[in-house]
Amino acid sequence: MLSAYKKIFLILVLLVALLFSSSNAYAMHIMEGFLPLKWCLVWAIITLPFIIFGLLSLNKTVKNHPETKMLLGLAGAFTFVLSALKIPSVTGSCSHPTGVGLGAILFGPTAMSVLGLIVLIFQALLLAHGGITTLGANTFSMAVVGPFVAYGIYKLGQRLNSPLWLSVFLAAALGDLLTYVVTALQLALAFPAEIGGFTASFAKFTGIFAVTQIPLAISEGLLTIIIFNLLTIYNKQELQELAIISPKDISRKGAKI
């Protein structure tokens, strides 16, 4: 097993070397006031149904499985920690992971839309990070697209019988990465380049957002595996209750990870 991790490590080193030459960039949520009113409204309206479904879904989960409340708290806490950590990236700038993958796997994507929204409101009001006007757009990228990608990939991995750790890693990492691709998309739609229009703009924004995010997405994937490992040891019952892992995934000492 160790050699598999060594291989992964080598791939990571190669990736880092690849990104070496990228130029200076930034990557975060869309800042307050930096999205025209029209787009603020569009994204807010698109996001709203996900929040409503999320509240209903959370309600149902808590009612049907009251013993999973603590686990729900953990999913929220995980997002809270990860989105507070601004981590240096190989592009020479900083960004932060989103941490929504774990909760999406555990409680489904719309539940994370609600938790993600709470984190974003906290950061917009207290940290001047993101914004109230851009809340809809940021919630859509981080708390709708991210969790849906993570959830979809996890389910796909399960269907294809991929090892649990791989499904968890890809779900969390790609959910994180796609969040920032969507941020780039949102900015490109609002600010098409004068020459080249949307495509040129999207290429530029993707270059700065997504590239910075790659090593962070890998970190998030790895951290999610760590937490998931621990959950499969100590919270086997809850995981089975939520039908996240099947008995075949579990050996005596925890999950086959």
Binding site: V16, V90, G92, S93, C94
Partner: peptide, 24 residues
Amino acid sequence: ILFIIVIMLVIIPLWVKGNAEFSG
């Protein structure tokens, strides 16, 4: 081991891009 990889992913950019601003 996973945790060590995460820490390295954080440290490597600081080392490789020693004189960048890391502004975000």
